[in-house]
Design a protein around this nucleic acid. Structure first.
Lengths: 107, 107
DNA sequence: CTTCCATACCTAGTGTTGCTAGGTATGGAA
DNA sequence: TTCCATACCTAGCAACACTAGGTATGGAAG
C-alpha cells in the first residue's frame, strides 16, 4: 500500500523526462530501493487517472525496433502538483513522526 | 487521510496509559501539532477494529462525576504491533523520500 | 428551570485507492 | 517454434477514512 502518495511518486519518476509505463515501474522500484515493486494494475490505472486530471500527457510511439509504447510526460500542472505533493508529504511525515515518537502526554 | 498509518498512531496514543475515545482524539491532535484533527467517525470504528483484532481491550467506567466512558488500553499484542508499525513507518518513509527526492535516473 | 453547548458514544453508507486476476499482443532468444 | 520478457489494458474487490447522520448526559448560562 502506498497510502495516498502514489501520485506524487509517479510524478517524481517523470521529473527527469518522459517515460512509458513499464519504465516507470522500474524507475520507482529502483529509486525506492526495491520497496515499491508496483504491479501493473496499480500503475496503469494511476497513469490514466493522472492524465485525466491533466497532470500528465501521453503519446504513442512505435520505435523502428521495439514494441508500441505509450509515453507519458509531466504537464505544467503536473509539475506544480508534484511540488505540492512534496510539501504535503513533508507535513504528513512530520506529523506522523511526532505522533509516533513515544514521548509523554502534553499535560 | 491518514494513509494506512492510523492504527499505529492510535496505538502510540495509548502507550502512556489507557484513555477513552474523545481523549484519544485530543491526544492525537495535540501530538501532531494540530495536523491530525480526526473526526469521531474515523476514531470509533478504528478503535472497534483494533479491539476486534486483539490489539486493544476496553472497559466501561462510570466515574462519580462525569459521563459513561469506554476506556481503551493496549494489549501485549498491541504493544508488539506498535513496534512493528514504527518499523514499517520508518521503511515506508525512507522509500518515499528516496522516490520523491529529485535525483537523476540510475542509468 | 430551561435551554444550550461540550462531552461522549455510535453506525450506515460513500468515495477513493491500490490491488488481484484476468486478458491481449509482440519481439527476441532458446 | 516455443517460450519468456516486454508492454499494454480492464473489471471487480477489499480496505480505509470520512460524511452525515443519530443518541444521550453533565454543566453552564440565561
Amino acid at each position: 500500500m502506498l497510502k495516498g502518495h502514489l501520485d506524487a511518486i509517479v510524478l517524481a519518476a517523470l521529473e527527469n523526462g518522459p517515460a512509458h509505463g513499464y519504465a516507470i515501474i522500474e524507475a520507482i522500484k529502483s529509486r525506492s530501493g526495491g520497496t515499491f515493486d508496483l504491479p501493473e494494475g496499480t500503475i496503469y490505472p494511476a497513469l490514466h487517472r493522472l492524465e485525466q486530471a491533466g497532470l500528465l500527457s501521453s503519446s504513442w510511439t512505435t520505435p523502428p525496433s521495439g514494441r508500441k509504447r505509450r509515453i507519458y510526460a509531466l504537464t505544467k500542472t503536473g509539475t506544480t502538483r508534484l511540488a505540492e505533493g512534496r510539501k504535503a508529504w513533508s507535513r504528513f511525515a512530520k506529523a506522523v513522526e511526532a505522533s509516533l515518537g513515544g514521548r509523554a502526554w502534553p499535560a
